[in-house]
Nucleic acid binder design. Sequence first.
DNA 1: CTGTTAGCGCTTTCAT
DNA 2: ATGAAAGCGCTAACAG
Lengths: 342, 342
Amino acid sequence: MTRTSHTLKTVAQQLGVSTATISNAFSRPDQLSAQLREKILQACAELGYQGPNKAAQSLRKGSSGIVAVILSDSLDYMVSDPVASQFIRGVARSLELQQRHMLLFSGSAPSLDPIADFVDGFICYGAPRNTALIDQLEKTSKKVLMVDCDLPGRPSVNIDNEQAAFEIASRVLQADSRVAILGLRLTDAPNSCRLGDSPLWDSQSSIAHRRLDGYLRAAAAAGVSISNQQIWHLPKSSQQDAMDAVREALADEPKPNLLLCMSDLIALSAMREVLQQGLRIPQDVQVVGFDGIEEGQRYHPTLTSIWQHSDQKGEAAVDAFLRGDSGSLLLPYELRPGESSR
Amino acid sequence: MTRTSHTLKTVAQQLGVSTATISNAFSRPDQLSAQLREKILQACAELGYQGPNKAAQSLRKGSSGIVAVILSDSLDYMVSDPVASQFIRGVARSLELQQRHMLLFSGSAPSLDPIADFVDGFICYGAPRNTALIDQLEKTSKKVLMVDCDLPGRPSVNIDNEQAAFEIASRVLQADSRVAILGLRLTDAPNSCRLGDSPLWDSQSSIAHRRLDGYLRAAAAAGVSISNQQIWHLPKSSQQDAMDAVREALADEPKPNLLLCMSDLIALSAMREVLQQGLRIPQDVQVVGFDGIEEGQRYHPTLTSIWQHSDQKGEAAVDAFLRGDSGSLLLPYELRPGESSR
DNA sequence: CTGTTAGCGCTTTCAT
DNA sequence: ATGAAAGCGCTAACAG
């Protein structure tokens, strides 16, 4: 038997005090004596009153303490990505510290409407697959923080993807390098394929294009030329998509001896395939990744990569969001050499 | 420049109609002429009014259209579990069809309070790590549906874990079987270890114990005895935890020749380790899993397992929840033989 | 330290 | 087909 729920008012009547006193007992301890507060809390617990209704509280106060994290893709895909998981973990930790709560939201959802009025704002992690969401983020009067991407007039947290890509590529490029670039979401093709003549997609904001710019700048500096035939687009960092691209690349003549991968997940799949084909890393083929995930350190050979420290990025994002930053924050990264490069 | 947001009232004033008419235009199309409705919607779009505030709507109507899914563990852990992902995907699909929304919530959160007033109810997927949440679910006056576990007086969706475990074990057990059981969350130990004399944990509701019962019943039927030294507890289905347990098991004399694994993830890790040690599957060691994940079909040898069809389970859960079922629903499962067993 | 009251934005009778 | 008005449960002035 679930008895009908109490409200502030009914509880106040039962205890013979005013509603304000009950409200204060829960939300502003300094407004009444400790004893009375204790007595009230005690009585409420007995009555089964759990405290002020959060929906009403939110309506009245204009804020709920809930922050939406908009992922770039569907929940189940994103959450199985170690980089996203690490970011989410950082966000969760920092929000918890600040007594706030997180609402994970899919970037492929049709609209923000169903949650927009329940949350205090949005932390947008990467460009949402459904671009309609970007429009909504642009228009909303709530707080918005972009991570790993930009939106005019909105604060952001980023690393310098172009410079990081330049640095890691510079480290491994030599005059005789035959490069294959394994890129992530460079176009909107659903399968892995060479970039060829397909038009670049959304080239401004995407981190993939910033990284590509960095690779190409490093190549130019090293006197190495890279055609669109040597650049692959992968729709996601999955094993399968990576394998498809790597096989195609390794079948080229002359065979590439340097794989620049836009994520560690891609790089790990690439290494697996390279070794499978009997080639040696790094003697025959060098491989470098991007992101920095534990698995890359456990692999043999260990992976050379750019470490983004995504958990710290998550914490930084929450702090910037809560602080109400309005500018853009550039986080440090770290080039970690491994055995996969010379 | 973000202009100050409109409300039903301000919009009504601007358009020279009453608030009820605006409300009806959005929520009850049959209450006004199609033309007027169209005109109003049009005007609202121009004014930048997105429709009734959901928080106020929820307060007034007493329901929000949001359903909380309580996971058994933290978000980042759960989401990287393919079985949970599949379930979540099923839930998402079915909710979307019914114009409802999902709020994923961590089973290790300290309390349901922060979200309880925003949602229409809870779908609880497995026993939450934080048992305080179970108490809250027991007490709440909102709708609750349990999945893969039970709560007195609440409806549930399950498979018959005991029978499924019995069936798969019966299929592979022989009089000369030397069994090792790799169990999931059998106690609350933080590391993989033999069950030994540790007391069983929460033995009633846990699916792990139901499966264990099934294995043991099959063993008894086959005339095989299994001591607590042959049963391992793994805190989670991670590669590392599985490897620890499998190594310990394979070091026993006589070496086990049958590994009964309580998840496919554990079984895959086990197969990896078995092959690594130069043993043959299934000639030297048979391995069976539980759950049914794609990766098990792709592995060589393919994995013998119980297929739960977790996506369908997710859909069934939503349907039962929305329908307001009060009893418990037992879903079918499927024994799929693979090359990992004889 | 406590009580009264207005109103957050909305839906829904009940009149018109 | 439309409008007026009563609240959903709560908080923040303000007055006592």
